[in-house]
């Protein structure tokens, strides 16, 4: 019996190792390609032992303005996150603290907007931005990212507000505190961890977004995902440079995922599963 258990446990361990190998192998290949020089990167069969180089990482900043693409991505994600958190926390507080007719319907309407297919929103937003002469500016992307970040932030923060007791706010308001005072001085400090988690999620969504960025930006406001596809050229793919840029796009997201790990399931399911 115990021998059988031992075999089963060993098989489960092997399976677990295989799962993690399958998860990690593809990004590992990307990293490996990023530290190969142009000659090694194009060798077949693939070389596993080679002299690593950091030249690809240096050259993407010299050959193309990758630094400014990183900056664009960062600025757009950051500002869109700040707007989503400000507007979203106000709305989430309002939706959980005031009882009014159809407040539930309003909450679910806001959640539904989160699911709008990007291509459906991108067509009219492209026309509008074109008429406003805002194409190829960070502002156009910031507004476009608010279309999914504001609903997401409202919905997720709503679940954080629901979790904190209302008694302290109520007694403060009996003592003459305004509802904005109760919001900013009592409720917000209590949900700071939730606010941080929500902000990390909206940052990840904005950083990763591709369709809006492809359509709304040209050369000046281009973000990292669009710049990455620029390494695929008519004359061929610049593999090792693209790999280096890909690693630089990927690493911040891995760190952010680790930071938000406790709230990962909640964030990925809009709070449907805790």
């Amino acid at each position: 019996m115990s021998k059988k258990r031992g075999i089963i446990n060993f098989l489960l361990l092997v399976l677990t190792v295989i799962v993690f190998a399958v998860v990690l192998f593809p990004p590992f290949m990307l990293f490996l390609t990023s530290i190969k020089n142009n000659v090694d990167a194009l060798k077949y069969p693939p070389v596993w032992l080679f002299k690593p180089t950091s030249s690809n990482y240096r050259e993407i900043f010299e050959l193309i303005p990758f630094g400014s693409y990183l900056l664009n991505s960062f600025v757009v994600a950051m500002i869109s996150t700040v707007i989503a958190l400000s507007i979203g926390s106000l709305a989430a507080y309002g939706l959980t603290r005031f009882r009014f007719k159809r407040s539930k319907d309003l909450s679910f309407w806001i959640l539904s907007i989160r699911m709008t297919p990007p291509v459906a929103a991108a067509i009219p937003i492209f026309i509008i931005m074109r008429n406003l002469r805002l194409l190829d500016t960070p502002l156009a992307l910031i507004l476009a990212y608010c279309t999914f970040n504001i609903p997401f932030a409202t919905w997720l923060l709503r679940s954080f507000f629901q979790e904190i007791p209302q008694e302290i706010e109520e007694s403060a308001m009996v003592d003459g505190c305004s509802s904005f005072g109760a919001f900013s001085r009592i409720a917000i400090p209590l949900i700071t961890p939730g606010l941080a988690a929500t902000g990390i999620f909206t940052f990840i969504f904005s950083w990763n977004e591709f369709l809006f960025a492809l359509i709304l930006t040209g050369t000046r406001a281009q973000t990292v995902p669009v710049a990455l596809t620029g390494f695929i050229r008519e004359t061929g793919v610049m593999w090792s440079h693209m790999a280096a840029a890909g690693v630089l796009a990927m690493v911040p997201m891995i760190i952010f995922t680790a930071l938000v790990q406790r709230n990962l399931v909640k964030g990925l399911t809009m709070g449907a599963i805790k």
């Binding site: 799962v19 993690f20 890909g246």
Partner: peptide
């Protein structure tokens, strides 16, 4: 959990 979910939270273009 963090390692497992890397494919889903990394940039889809990557």
């Amino acid at each position: 959990r963090t390692i497992l979910v890397i494919p889903s939270t990394m940039t889809p273009v990557v």
